[in-house]
């Protein structure tokens, strides 16, 4: 059995590692975005997805800035 979710991650991972901004982020945060998109693929809720992604990205940005200060 081929897991589509795993294939998505396999496709995205090398691209994340090559990206200067994204390589600084936790993979789990990106995984959460993918999981949300997967979950809502068959019950689209634009409002919910937008607010989830905006919040998640803000959270990621906060963590990134925090890490930059520490470094």
């Amino acid at each position: 059995m081929i897991d589509a979710k795993q294939e998505i991650l396999n496709t995205i991972k090398p691209l994340i590692e090559k990206n200067k901004i994204l390589q600084q982020l936790e993979h789990e945060d990106i995984l959460e975005i993918i999981e949300h998109l997967l979950e809502y693929q068959f019950k689209p809720n634009e409002k919910k997805t937008k607010s989830f992604i905006d919040e998640k990205i803000s959270e990621m940005a906060t963590n990134m800035l925090k890490n930059e200060v520490i470094e």
Partner: peptide
């Protein structure tokens, strides 16, 4: 924070776009 968020969103949208064809 807003600037970083914008950049993250942009980077993610780009990799989603690139990954579509590969996937």
């Amino acid at each position: 924070k807003l600037q970083t968020s914008r950049k993250i969103a942009n980077a993610l949208s780009e990799i989603f776009n690139t990954a579509l064809e590969n996937f």
